[in-house]
Simulated scan of single mutants.
Amino acid sequence: MLLMKNPATDRAPLPAVRVEVAAGSAGSIALKRGQLLRIEALEDGAVASLFGFSENDPMVHLSVHHTRVFSNSYVLGSGMRLVNNRRRPVMVLGKDSVGRHDLLLPASTSAYLRSKGYDGMGCVEAVQAELDRLGRQQPKLPDPINLFMHVSLERDGTIIPQSNTVKAGDKVTCRVVQDMLFIVSTCCTGVEGNDKPGAVALSAAENLSDFAG
């Protein structure tokens, strides 16, 4: 299984790292090629809007659009390669206790949430604030991969939000194949049934056995 196999690298093993992201905010974690990224829901109903930025080229980022085309699918499944805007693999999805994720919808903005009667900061503003905190300039903020969000696509092309069934402890784990900075927003999505912000944990490790719990 891919997650069990750590690609050959010329670096020393790195210690495991865990970052908790409170509901309604954004947090980040940096990974090196060969490490595992785990994203875990800490509260029922959490949605983790995932962004990824290359550590080597500011013009390269995780791209949900290219991932759909590369895989010829709008459904994220085990073994699927998530690619960047140059159609190069960024990571591969391995263990997944949920099996329902969104590759269609953009990140929320504060203005959009206000127009829908929600309070709080949008995903776009939260991610930009995290980039500012890191002193990082990105020429473009791409659309995210919305982990744990559940929507369906009807035959006529209509997108129908479905009830979020994520429970605390649900998680996805990916093997990263490029040096990347990942940012996750846990802000309100404004999407019915998936609009309750929930905390998540971001973890990096060399092997599955290195993760706590």
Rank of each mutant, 00 (worst) to 15 (best):
Y118W: 09
D119H: 09
G120V: 08
G120I: 06
M121T: 13
G122S: 02
G122W: 02
G122V: 06
C123Y: 00
V124D: 10
A126M: 08
Q128N: 10
Q128L: 15
A129Q: 13
A129E: 14
E130S: 04
E130A: 05
L131S: 12
L131H: 12
L131R: 11
R133G: 07
L134M: 09
G135R: 08
G135I: 07
G135M: 11
R136T: 13
R136I: 15
Q137D: 14
Q137H: 14
Q138H: 04
P139Y: 09
P139A: 07
P142D: 08
D143H: 01
P144K: 12
P144S: 13
I145V: 15
I145W: 02
L147C: 09
F148S: 01
M149L: 15
M149E: 08
H150P: 00
V151G: 01
V151P: 00
S152C: 03
L153C: 07
R155K: 15
R155V: 13
G157W: 01
G157A: 13
T158M: 15
I159P: 07
I160D: 08
P161K: 04
Q162N: 06
S163C: 04
N164M: 03
N164A: 07
T165S: 11
T165H: 04
V166N: 03
V166D: 04
V166E: 04
K167P: 03
G169P: 12
D170N: 10
D170Y: 03
D170I: 03
K171Y: 11
K171P: 00
K171N: 07
V172A: 06
V172L: 06
V172N: 00
V172W: 00
T173H: 02
R175F: 11
R175W: 08
R175A: 07
Q178G: 02
Q178F: 01
Q178H: 06
D179C: 14
M180H: 09
M180V: 10
M180I: 07
L181T: 15
L181Q: 14
F182I: 05
I183V: 14
I183C: 08
V184L: 10
S185E: 11
T186K: 14
C187T: 13
C188A: 15
C188Q: 12
C188I: 10
C188P: 12
T189L: 08
T189I: 10
V191F: 09
V191M: 11
G193A: 08
G193T: 04
